[in-house]
Amino acid sequence: MSATAPVAGRKWKRPPLFFQSKALRYFIYGAALVYLVLALGTLNINWVRVAEGTERAGRFISGFIQPDFTTRGRDIWNGLIESLTMTFTATVVGVLISVPIGIGAARNIAPPFVYMVCRSIIAISRAFQEIVIAILFVAMFGFGPFAGFLTLSFATIGFLSKLLAEDIEDIDESQSEAIRATGASWFQLINYAIQPQVMPRLIGLSVYRLDINFRESAVIGIVGAGGIGATLNTSMSRYDYDTAGAILLIIILLVMAAEYSSSHIRKWVQ
């Protein structure tokens, strides 16, 4: 007669994830729905402008279908080289600076004071979106790829140091315990116990960041930090949609190539 007795036809339902009370659940989901409808109502869509935009989009798409690589070929080429240079140098410099900061920001190997300093640097670097930093650096150092280089290096530090530090905090402690037990120094501990464990991920993240930096270089160019983004911006403001289409196609191809090769590199270093 106990509850565990096997009875045929005994009902089972998955318990709800949130809000055990049925009434509360319906009330909250209902309220969210009502808010969504009201919020959509305030959007105030101007259909005339939508129609104009659609027309412009048509012209844009036709430019895309017939991209013009040649008329402004030299500008595109220069912008591309500038972007690639900026991407590559910024990634290398960013990675070189990130490694010591990442090590310092790992709680299990850094003393508390160093940990605090490195975590603060990471927090500052991550606080701002690339465009905000780019605007700042363009204002400080003028238009051109140098501002872009600084922006991307700065953004790389926040990204890579944080992920590296987290990876170091996740290592298998028994391996570093074994190395410490041999009487190894701190640097030897890093070299023998930490580095082998985090290296594949560090390489994978660096390649991934290279990929991100290339995409970002196109964006920050629009606010004046040089590269292919600047070329794109110029062609757009000239209503030169054929050239813009060509540039977008090149960006898409390069990002796809980077994506493809980075996944290969990451598999290979495992």
């Binding site: 298998d172 028994s174 391996q175 315990e177 074994a178 190395i179 037990a181 041999t182 023998y192 116990a193 082998p196 464990q197 290296m199 594949p200």
Partner: peptide
Amino acid sequence: GMIFQEYALVERL
């Protein structure tokens, strides 16, 4: 010298 339960070798070396 110390010898460990799960060997504690550095796996990737």
